[in-house]
Nucleic acid binder design. Structure first.
Lengths: 146, 146
DNA sequence: GACTCAATCAATAACCATTCCTGAAACGGA
DNA sequence: TCCGTTTCAGGAATGGTTATTGATTGAGTC
């Protein structure tokens, strides 16, 4: 993890009152090592390699704390486990319905959408998420080949 | 159900090869009677009032068939069961994180977003969904009151 | 360094929406 | 009517996630 983010993370822990334990740090490291957008299970497997005593429940709890204090974010496509992401900048992700791989979709501006939604509903908007599904090039090729 | 939609539905069943059974019709009727966006369980409870022998699994299967042939659509907010909707026109829904109520958000244009996404990813986009969460006026009031 | 209290942890059981499985029933076509 | 296929009911199973319960750890204090 870059120094800057590291400081930022420490700051968020300090402000929240939660403590930055070794398990939570391990979860963060697993997230930054993992390519793509790992599930809780993926994170668990990575963390377990270094510390076999860690339980899956601990990983879930750590992920929930990290999301609550705004260090990571989650996306939940239906019919698949929740994916976690260190990238906090607004961005779109697409998930392959066949193999489950998640990739970023660059270059699509969604600025102002949340504001327009808020302007058109009496609800107090707390979160918006764009969930995109498709076929990755690899799976599209295999489908045509088969 | 209006006559027009009724004919449309029959047509979609004919084309798909599925049969429009009484159970599937009952599910459709339950969906059109239900206010808002019912879950499978909600639909099940309504259907069961008229036909107590119908099983929950049957409702799930019927909903899945109806979605597959394009008669209904589903939205899945995390941490809550999938909601089903007869309204096939593009529209946004917001879900209250406190009571679970779903309401429509009118007047927000999302035209062209799917095309822009497709233009910026090598994936073959099959589906996009905007999932919006917030606090409904009622729950926001209760929160402030408490 | 020992003490105290709260926060956190590991392990496991429980939960719940959804799917799968099985044999029975209904349906459509010869 | 018979036959093959589709659909159904009922219930068991699945899988991601959360709750529970003591044990452990850690920061602050003396």
């Amino acid at each position: 993890m870059p120094e800057v983010r590291d400081h930022d993370i420490r700051e968020k822990f300090r402000r929240s009152g939660y403590t930055l334990t070794s398990q939570r740090r391990a979860v963060l490291e697993a997230l930054s090592e993992a390519r793509g957008h790992p599930s809780a299970e993926d994170v668990y497997l990575v963390v377990k390699r270094k510390n076999p005593r860690v339980a899956l429940g601990t990983v879930y709890q750590a992920l929930s704390v990290l999301e609550e204090i705004g260090v990571i974010e989650s996306k939940h496509w239906s019919e698949s486990p929740t994916r976690y992401d260190l990238n906090l900048a607004p961005h779109l992700d697409i998930r392959c319905v066949r193999c489950g791989d998640v990739a970023e979709v660059p270059g699509v501006e969604m600025d102002g959408v949340e504001e327009r939604i808020q302007a058109n509903t009496p609800y107090e908007v707390t979160r918006t998420a764009m969930l995109i599904e498709g076929l990755c090039p690899k799976c599209a090729g295999e489908r045509n080949g088969a």
